[in-house]
Design a protein around this nucleic acid. Structure first.
Length: 434
RNA sequence: GCAGGGGUUCCCGAGUGGCCAAAGGGAUCAGACUGUAAAUCUGACGCGCAAGCUUCGGUGGUUCGAAUCCACCCCCCUGCACCA
């Protein structure tokens, strides 16, 4: 048997990655041998977002320590909807839509774990495989009988739905826990899986599975939850003005992804290094000390952005993100060559061609159409404050009616390009038509 | 089905005939300050460059004038009843 790293739990603990665990400390002993563990990912969209990164990377940490990870894609549970800590009932997605998402999520999850490393090679499973032909009566007799409604009603995860005025919970969502519990019991049988990990919101579902496995098979299995990622300022982690940060590069470009991490607040960055990177805890502590001693800009954000971007988008994605960032934020953009600009475009810098009739539109309209702002108001505000910069030149509100002058061929970079900056961080590359 | 309570601009949440594009808070955006931070201050925050236009679950009324009043309808919640 491959060697097992017995310091894994201790390392996870030092990283702050352990929220709760079942079994009164017996887990450490259990993990002295190579075990099989799983974590579920429900398809609620065609991509996971960075909220799923902590469990995903934790699976990887377990694999690196010599355990066998199973990534479960919730083809069945995704059809139901997890009510845990959700404020309101959610609408159901159609089976074919969910099935499409399952395929995407399966591929995405697969890039994080190793499927070819001997005995502890990873596996991906879909819980639809053991639920789609399940008979209702069998389900109620074999699974449902082991659950106490009294007990379920008291779960913290559904309490607000049951107690809160103005909200309720359908039987469908209420049953979610039974399905997930069944997964654990099933994987225990099929794969000798003895540990489930998940976000802290999954505690109720996980203990449900631990109990069911014991009742159905007299099996001793464990659960471990990871902390919810929070930010020091109290705002929600993983959102920016342009929305959720996704793992799919088609939804969030490697450049935008890199920028997201680079903008991490000082108060959060060391914690995030422990959560999201494979750097050792001692190494991270050293970075923190060095940043504290040096006045001015800390290095931690740059390290975090590099590490996580590489993890998710690979060396190429990271290189692209760094190229764009360097060009926009530290270089002189007017000095970029035509091929540099073309490269930035390919690397994911938002770009578009000016419409043929742009001369007849207002500047505000052109920028909004290009997606730089949701409406004209922010652009107008920015113009009024000289916060719109075209090829390094500030443009004011008085130029709004003269886009032809702003985008004059004579002032284009390499006869064709304009880099427009809106505010401090929003960039867009325009090309003259033709 | 019956009774009661609700549906307001991204979220929470005021507003109960004109002073309402609609308080306040949150989130977000921009500016100053900075480190592409934080904190703080300033401005914006339905749409429109603007004049102006369109909103307060839906439809139709009353009125000089409605988010606010009336009617009907849709949806949500709570309880009761029905299913037995």
């Amino acid at each position: 048997m491959a060697g097992v790293d017995t310091t894994l739990l201790k390392d996870l603990d030092r990283r702050g990655l352990i929220n709760q665990a079942t079994g009164d400390g017996e887990l450490t002993e259990h993990l002295a041998h190579s075990r099989t563990l799983y974590c579920g990912f429900d398809p609620t969209a065609d991509s996971l977002h960075i909220g799923s990164l902590v469990p995903l990377l934790t699976l990887k940490r377990f694999q690196a320590a010599g355990h066998r990870p199973i990534a479960l894609v919730g083809g069945a549970t995704g059809l139901i909807g997890d009510p845990s800590f959700k404020a309101q009932e959610r609408s159901l997605n159609t089976p074919d839509v969910v099935a499409g998402w399952v395929d995407k999520i399966r591929a995405q999850v697969s890039q994080f774990i190793d499927f070819d490393c001997g005995e502890n090679s990873a596996t991906v499973v879909n819980n639809l495989d053991w639920t789609q032909n399940l008979n209702v009566l069998d389900f109620l007799r074999e699974v449902g009988k082991h659950f106490s409604v009294n007990n379920m009603v008291n779960k913290e995860s559904v309490k607000q739905r049951i107690q809160r005025e103005g909200e309720g919970i359908s039987f469908t969502e209420f049953s979610y826990m039974l399905l997930q519990s069944m997964d654990f019991s099933e994987l225990y049988q099929r794969e000798s899986c003895t540990l489930q990990i998940g976000g802290s919101d999954q505690w109720g579902n996980i203990t449900g599975g631990v109990d069911l496995t014991r009742r159905q098979h007299r099996g001793k299995v464990f659960g471990l939850t990871l902390p919810l990622v929070t930010k020091a300022d109290g705002t929600k982690f993983g959102k920016t003005e342009s929305g959720t940060i996704w793992l799919d590069p088609k939804r969030t470009s490697p450049y935008a992804f890199y920028q997201f991490w680079l903008n991490t607040a000082d108060a959060d960055v060391y914690k995030f290094l422990r959560y999201f990177t494979f750097l050792g805890v001692d190494e991270i502590d050293a970075i923190e000390r060095a940043d504290a001693e040096r006045a001015g800009k800390p290095k931690a954000q740059g390290i975090l952005a590099r590490e996580v971007t590489r993890e998710v988008h690979g060396e190429e994605g990271l290189a692209a993100a760094e190229r764009i960032s360097a060009a926009l934020f530290s270089g002189e953009i007017t000095e970029l060559s035509a091929s540099d600009l073309e490269q930035l475009r390919q690397d994911g810098l938002p770009s578009s061609e000016l419409p043929a009739d742009f001369g007849e539109q207002s500047l505000i309209h052109v920028l909004v159409e290009a997606g730089m702002a949701p409406s004209g108001k922010p652009v107008k505000d920015a113009l009024g404050r000289k916060a719109v910069i075209v090829n390094g030149q500030p443009v004011g509100i008085e130029s709004n009616g003269e886009p032809a002058a702003v985008f004059a061929p004579g002032s284009a970079l390499h006869d064709r390009y304009f880099i427009v900056r809106l505010g401090k961080k929003k960039y867009h590359l325009f090309a003259l038509p033709g």
